[in-house]
Write a protein that binds this DNA or RNA. Structure first.
Lengths: 187, 187
DNA sequence: CGTTCAGTTGACTAAGGTCAATTCCCGTGG
DNA sequence: CCACGGGAATTGACCTTAGTCAACTGAACG
């Protein structure tokens, strides 16, 4: 939890009292490989930070898994759309390995928003970070071919490449495993 | 400006004093058809709301325009990535018709963040809204074919369809004008 | 009327999707 | 230690669809 405190203080410097209040809302949770942290059809009522492990965010369409995100230690994770709108999620969050995470319930966070500038700042900055990730990813889909997206991934997210099986990377790039295999051969 | 005030009060209820402070940072600006509100290579130092008109957010890659967003009255607009990171924008913002907008400089907004909970709430909620838009759009690219994306657009954004020339819609969907024309024929 | 430009169409190419078969890799159990 | 099983990755054959380039159509505008 000390590590988390330091991390959050990099975002916004909370005083001890604020930190204590925040801490009371945070649960540390462990999970095993394959655990479903969120299942399709349920509301995502939390936002979390990965402490250890590797998680993915995926949906199933016509029998095929579509992986939307991978999360590594110190990444925020949530179905933030469901979190914000109270709409049931279309996605699953799965632990790809054993791991631990810190979770904070929406209801708790929304109470904090009424209390101080700093909690609002924290919420704002988290939201901004999540925006940036989505925006960059969308830009890739709009202007790059699958091959170019793969090359970008090689440069910008080599950690994903080495940590994740190729068929999940394919769906992360919006293509089939066979296509990714052929793209790799063409290079 | 009264209309804007009402709109913002729907997001977070500012008292008169807060509204006056905010108002002092807002400029109302008119523009002609074709005006470039932001040009590639410049930092986007503002966030705005469309009062009237129709705007688009596009970049050019290998001579082709890639339209990333369309903005209608009461939409927030900005290259929010550039706004947040102070990195020069890769995009252009163009007025597709004569119009007016309200603009707020980043520097002013960041000063407001130091002043009260409400301004932070406002910033947070704007950021959340921008996130939601991006997230939905990315989901479409991940799980839908061009044809399905077009059909979704028909259902969910008919206003775009009727307001925007087809070749821009094609690039918004991530395909060429010819392909969109053929997709429409196939339906 | 022409000019212009969006939209369509045609012919062709390139690339991804699909389905099935095969190979590769790795872990497990005999 | 080897053999086997299972899942990931690759490959092949074929299909479908998007990209490209060029020609044509049609509507809007002066």
């Amino acid at each position: 939890m000390e590590y988390l405190k330091k991390h959050i203080n990099n975002i916004v410097s909370l005083n001890e009292e604020e930190w204590d209040v925040l801490k009371n809302g945070i649960q540390e949770i462990s999970c095993a490989k394959g655990d479903l942290i969120l299942a399709e059809g349920n509301e995502c009522d939390f936002i979390g930070i990965i402490k250890t492990g590797l998680f993915r965010f995926y949906t199933i369409k016509e029998g095929n898994e579509k992986t939307n995100e991978f999360w590594f230690p110190m990444d925020y994770f949530s179905d933030y759309r469901s979190y914000l709108t109270n709409i049931p999620s279309n996605f699953n969050i799965e632990a790809m390995r054993p791991g631990t995470m810190w979770k904070l319930k929406r209801t708790y966070m929304y109470k904090l928003y009424e209390e101080s500038v700093n909690f609002n700042k924290l919420g704002r900055i988290v939201s901004e970070q999540l925006f940036l990730k989505k925006a960059l990813r969308l830009d890739g889909f709009l202007k790059d071919s699958p091959k170019e997206r793969y090359l970008q991934l090689l440069i910008k997210d080599p950690n994903i490449l080495q940590a994740v099986p190729q068929y999940m990377i394919a769906s992360y790039l919006g293509i089939t495993p066979e296509s990714l295999s052929r793209i790799r051969k063409r290079i």
